[in-house]
Amino acid sequence: MSTSWPLWEVFVRGKRGLNHVHVGSLHAPDAEMALRNARDVYTRRNEGVSIWVVPAASITASSPDEKDPFFAPSGDKVYRHPTFYSIPEDVPHL
């Protein structure tokens, strides 16, 4: 297995003005080859104007098992949403 190439996660910006979005992964020996392979695998039909490749091992993710407590801090803060506030209908532009 010494020759197996590391895994890279691929993110593509579809067009200017949009965020990079995760599209999949691939194996490559180094970052430069990962970029070239990503171009051939994920952008054969003008799907992107920019590609990021990130070693899969470098990504830290939240655990789905902690789902409830981890996202709880935002769950009970309804006052963060504009709909929390009632404003008379005849007040314009608000």
Binding site: S2, T3, S4, W5, P29, D30, M33
Partner: peptide
């Protein structure tokens, strides 16, 4: 294709 995979891995290792 094995020599290509090995060569690319060796190249990447050398550069790293």
């Amino acid at each position: 294709g094995s020599w290509v995979r090995e060569a690319a891995a060796a190249h990447a290792q050398k550069h790293a």
